[in-house]
Computed example of a mutant assay.
Amino acid sequence: MTKPRITPRPTDDWTAEVDDAFAVLRAHAPGDQSGPPQRPKANILGIYAWHPGFVRGWMPFSDHLRHSTLPDRVREMAILRTTWLGYGEYEWAQHVWMSKAAGYLTENEIAALSEGPDAAEWSPADAAVVRAVDEMCTVKNVSDATWSELEAQFTREQLIDFTFTVGTYDMHCTAFTVLGLQLDEGLTGFPDDHRRAG
């Protein structure tokens, strides 16, 4: 989609209600938070800004996933594979940038996530993570064999967080496509050979 169906709300049009709704984002921000709130420019937050009630309901859960029990690297692997499979270009581009900037994943690992669980880059434990994402996104379940491999490396809390992370980003792929969410300036989208027809 080449234009948004809902355009981001300009930050100078945000109200005190919108600022208050986004307060959960500031809870983990570094530095002094006593001044006026900084309004993030991301296109998705601009869309959310039209609906403060949604923000108040959604952001605590979204913030939990961002700071969940999963190791950062595993979380980013799950998000990138999910959004690659679901053609979720916005979140894929955001998380490629974040993963590189934070050092969670290497260029080779990011490339391997576009290949899948059989990529030579993966250890058996990593391959199980990628395979679980593939199974969740294609058959909407995880095989007993793959689940056993996950249980060998994650706690119950981590298994729950993993499941909801994949499920949430799979939902993002649909929602953001429907809304016509456009990439933020400076981000690189999918390669030309990975675009859904139509």
Rank of each mutant, 00 (worst) to 15 (best):
H67P: 00
K41M: 03
R73F: 04
E115H: 02
K3G: 09
G86Q: 07
R26K: 01
G31E: 14
V133S: 04
L65V: 10
L159V: 09
H194Y: 12
V142L: 01
A42T: 14
D19N: 01
T2P: 01
P60Y: 15
T82K: 06
G180A: 02
F22G: 03
D20V: 05
D118T: 10
C137S: 08
C173T: 15
R26C: 06
E91W: 00
W84F: 02
I79C: 06
R5Y: 08
D192C: 05
N141G: 15
P30L: 05
K41I: 02
V166M: 05
R131I: 02
T138D: 00
A120T: 14
L45R: 11
G88D: 00
E151C: 14
H64W: 13
F54R: 15
M136K: 13
S148C: 08
T15G: 09
Q153Y: 11
S68R: 12
A42W: 10
D72I: 08
R73Y: 02
S99F: 06
T15N: 06
A152R: 12
D20E: 12
A101G: 04
E149T: 13
W92G: 00
G186M: 11
R5V: 03
F154E: 14
L179E: 11
T174I: 09
L85R: 14
M59P: 10
V130N: 05
R26Q: 08
W58R: 12
A120Q: 15
E91R: 05
P117E: 03
P10W: 15
L25D: 01
L85Q: 09
E107W: 03
K3E: 10
D126C: 03
R81W: 00
Y90S: 01
A16F: 01
A29I: 12
I110E: 10
K140A: 09
D126L: 02
N108W: 02
L80P: 07
T188G: 11
R39D: 14
F190Y: 15
E89W: 11
A197G: 09
T168M: 00
P117W: 00
L80I: 12
V74H: 03
L85E: 04
D32L: 08
A175K: 15
F162D: 09
D184G: 09
V18E: 06
D161W: 05
G57M: 13
T7F: 06
L85W: 00
A127S: 12
E17V: 02
P8H: 10
T177P: 02
R156F: 07
Y90V: 00
G46M: 12
H67G: 12
Q182P: 08
E135Q: 05
E149R: 15
E121S: 06
M77V: 10
K140W: 01
G46L: 14
G116A: 06
A125Y: 04
